[in-house]
Simulated scan of single mutants.
Amino acid sequence: MPTHLHETLIEMFRVRPVLAAEILDGQLHVPVPEFTEARLSPSDLTDVIPTEYRADAVVTLNDRHKTVLAVVIEVQLRKDDRKLHSWPAYVATLYARLHCPVALLVLCPVQSVADWSAAPIVMGPPGSVVTPVSLGPAQVPIVTDADSARRHPELTILSALAHGTRPDPQPIFGAMLHAFDTIDLDHARLYYELVLSGLPAAAQRLLEDFMTTTGHQYRSDFAKGFFNSGKDEGRAEGRAEGRAEALLTVLAARGLAVSDEHRALIAGCADDAQLDTWLRRAVGAEKIQELGDEFAG
């Protein structure tokens, strides 16, 4: 079942498909052809293959009316040898469908998994090979510059997730807030929750302390709302509101209808543990009633 981490990383590409080209061409040094548009494409790769195959996401880079590169995007949280059989099928099916080069981009929050997933997949003689391109923490840049953060907001979020445990993470956290200048409020809250939940407890405390004590005047609506909550009670409400917004964003990304009654239930919940439970269930739910008995009506 997909996790909150898995679903949020894929959401970055849903919101901004050109991120696939930026990662390939920038961080992983994979040449990308000239293109004028990056577009999210259907991720159902079944076609004539009897087994159903569905990638996490597919992005196509297009030059006018021609697709010049397709990118299969997979988020891999742990080693899974079954993927060594399904990934070549993803690439081959997309190659047959679009008649263009195909790259397989694997995002791995754990470096050992990134190293594993980067190994060439040899399918047989005389040289049938699919080679994934993997992005692990070691391949994610450390972003501390405000201008870079605004130009590449998703990479900045990944930087905070990958490097937020460094001895002095404040420049990294500051860059993350600058990145929020260019992200809508709902996704800023979603990405903040992603970083916060992905850090160990000590780094979480450093991030929360930074968010509530820094004197820098960040411009984003997200940051202003956080800094204006001067009391502990206000900060707690802000965190609950962020989790509620993250939950609604995940539900929308999965195409689940949310009634006004259910929206009010989520927005009115101040229990962080309950919101986290709903959020974990939401990333794998096929209908909103799977979140809990509260949504059965």
Rank of each mutant, 00 (worst) to 15 (best):
residue 155 L to F: 10
residue 11 E to V: 01
residue 11 E to I: 01
residue 210 F to S: 05
residue 135 L to P: 02
residue 107 L to D: 14
residue 248 L to G: 07
residue 260 D to Y: 00
residue 161 L to H: 03
residue 158 L to D: 06
residue 164 G to F: 05
residue 84 L to P: 02
residue 65 H to F: 08
residue 120 P to G: 02
residue 1 M to I: 02
residue 208 E to P: 01
residue 260 D to V: 05
residue 123 M to N: 10
residue 175 A to G: 06
residue 169 P to N: 01
residue 15 V to Q: 11
residue 208 E to M: 10
residue 4 H to E: 11
residue 197 S to H: 02
residue 198 G to D: 13
residue 60 T to K: 07
residue 203 A to C: 11
residue 279 L to H: 11
residue 222 F to T: 06
residue 53 Y to T: 07
residue 211 M to G: 08
residue 136 G to R: 10
residue 155 L to P: 07
residue 164 G to H: 09
residue 271 D to V: 08
residue 221 D to V: 13
residue 103 A to L: 03
residue 174 G to H: 10
residue 110 V to H: 12
residue 248 L to K: 15
residue 129 V to A: 07
residue 85 H to V: 02
residue 113 V to R: 09
residue 155 L to I: 13
residue 217 Q to E: 14
residue 14 R to S: 11
residue 233 E to L: 00
residue 211 M to L: 12
residue 230 G to K: 12
residue 218 Y to N: 02
residue 66 K to R: 15
residue 215 G to D: 14
residue 269 C to K: 09
residue 76 Q to W: 06
residue 206 L to H: 12
residue 180 F to T: 15
residue 219 R to V: 04
residue 47 D to Q: 06
residue 295 F to C: 12
residue 223 A to V: 00
residue 46 T to A: 03
residue 160 A to F: 12
residue 292 G to M: 01
residue 94 L to D: 00
residue 203 A to D: 14
residue 234 G to L: 12
residue 32 V to F: 00
residue 174 G to W: 03
residue 94 L to K: 02
residue 173 F to W: 06
residue 122 V to A: 07
residue 58 V to S: 04
residue 60 T to Y: 02
residue 69 L to R: 08
residue 115 D to V: 08
residue 254 R to D: 09
residue 241 E to F: 15
residue 166 R to N: 00
residue 88 P to W: 03
residue 193 E to P: 00
residue 29 H to E: 08
residue 216 H to Y: 14
residue 21 A to R: 07
residue 24 L to I: 07
residue 115 D to M: 01
residue 1 M to L: 06
residue 16 R to E: 07
residue 118 A to Y: 04
residue 14 R to W: 04
residue 287 K to D: 15
residue 247 L to R: 09
residue 199 L to E: 09
residue 165 T to A: 09
residue 119 A to Q: 15
residue 208 E to R: 12
residue 234 G to K: 06
residue 202 A to T: 12
residue 292 G to S: 05
residue 210 F to C: 06
residue 56 D to P: 11
residue 135 L to T: 07
residue 186 D to S: 14
residue 138 A to Y: 00
residue 64 R to T: 13
residue 6 H to A: 05
residue 270 A to L: 14
residue 225 G to P: 06
residue 238 G to L: 12
residue 66 K to D: 08
residue 131 T to G: 10
residue 116 W to E: 04
residue 244 A to K: 06
residue 175 A to I: 02
residue 258 V to E: 09
residue 272 D to T: 04
residue 205 R to A: 00
residue 247 L to V: 11
residue 89 A to K: 04
residue 207 L to C: 13
residue 94 L to G: 02
residue 104 L to F: 06
residue 203 A to L: 11
residue 96 A to W: 10
residue 62 N to Q: 15
residue 163 H to R: 11
residue 130 V to D: 12
residue 266 I to D: 09
residue 71 V to L: 07
residue 243 R to N: 01
residue 222 F to C: 06
residue 31 P to D: 03
residue 89 A to R: 10
residue 225 G to Y: 00
